[in-house]
Computed example of a mutant assay.
Amino acid sequence: MIERFPKWWFFYLIAKALFYVAGIIGLVSYGIMYLTVALTHPNPSLSTWIIGIGCWVLLFTPFAINRFIATKRKQKIQAVIEKVKQTGYFNPDQNGEYFLFWQSTYIGFDFRQGTILYIRIYPGNVMDVIGLDAYSLVRTEVDGSKLSLYTKFSTLPMIPLKTGAASSIANHLHAMSYKGYRYSFDFNDVLKKKCHEMATLTGMPVPELM
C-alpha cells in the first residue's frame, strides 16, 4: 500500500509547531535586537551583523522553501488537469475551481457534465487524482473552514478539505446532487485508465482507489 504520509511527517508537524511557538518569537526578538545594535553602534562587530541578518534569514527560509515546493506541485497539478480535460469529460466552469495552494490540493466542477475532479499531492510525494460525479459522495460535513467529503472508496473513505470556501464547495455539491444528471460513463474509471500517464507526467505514484 502506498503511504500518503511518510513516517517522518509526525515529527515534522511537531517541529513546525515548535517553530511557530518559540522559533518565530526568538528569531524576531534576536533579529531586531542585534540589527538595532549593528545600526546604532558606532563600531559594530562583524558577529553582530552576522547574527542579526542570520536571524532574519532563518526566519524566512522555511517559508521560501515551502512556497517553492508548493509552486512546483501546483505546476504538476495543472499539468494533470490539462491531461484530464483531454478526456472530454471535464471542462471546469470559471467559478467552479478551487486551488488550495499551501495544501497542494485542487477541486473543480464541470456543472454541464456533472463531473468533479479532486487532486491532492501528499507529503510523501503521492498524488490522488479522483473523478467524482454528482452521486459519488455519501455525505458532506462542514465545520467552519473544515469540509469533510465522505466517499464510497474503502481505501479513501473521507476527503478532508480546509478552506475558507468550504461552504461554497459544499453548496456546489449539494446543488449538483439535485440536478438529475445521467451518465453514460464512469468518470473515475476513465481517470483510472490514465493513472500510468499521470504518474509518468508528474514523476509520482497515483494510487488506484478501491
Rank of each mutant, 00 (worst) to 15 (best):
R139A: 11
T140L: 11
G131V: 08
I116R: 05
N125I: 00
G131Q: 10
Y122T: 10
D133E: 10
V142K: 10
R120I: 14
G131R: 13
R112M: 14
A134Q: 04
Y135I: 08
S136P: 00
D133K: 13
Q113I: 11
F111A: 12
A134M: 03
Q113N: 13
T115E: 03
D128E: 11
I107K: 03
R139T: 11
E141W: 12
Y118V: 09
G114Q: 02
I107C: 04
S136I: 03
V129S: 04
N125F: 14
D128C: 04
G108T: 08
V129K: 05
Q113G: 04
F109R: 05
G114N: 04
V129Q: 04
D133G: 04
I119E: 04
F109N: 05
A134Y: 02
R112S: 12
V142H: 07
D128P: 05
L132P: 04
I130W: 09
Y118G: 05
R120V: 14
D133P: 00
Y122N: 09
F109I: 09
F111I: 14
G108P: 07
Y122L: 11
Q113C: 03
S136R: 03
G131C: 11
I121K: 07
I116K: 05
G108N: 10
I107V: 14
F111L: 15
I107G: 02
D133S: 13
V138D: 08
T115R: 09
Y122S: 11
M127Q: 00
A134N: 02
G108F: 13
R139P: 00
T140I: 14
E141I: 13
V138K: 15
S136Q: 01
I121G: 01
R139N: 13
I121N: 02
D110W: 05
E141M: 13
F111T: 08
R139S: 12
L137Y: 05
F111S: 14
D128M: 05
L132K: 08
D128G: 04
N125D: 12
I121F: 01
I119K: 01
R112I: 15
R112G: 07
I121T: 06
V126P: 02
Y118F: 15
Y122I: 08
I116S: 06
P123S: 09
V126E: 01
E141F: 13
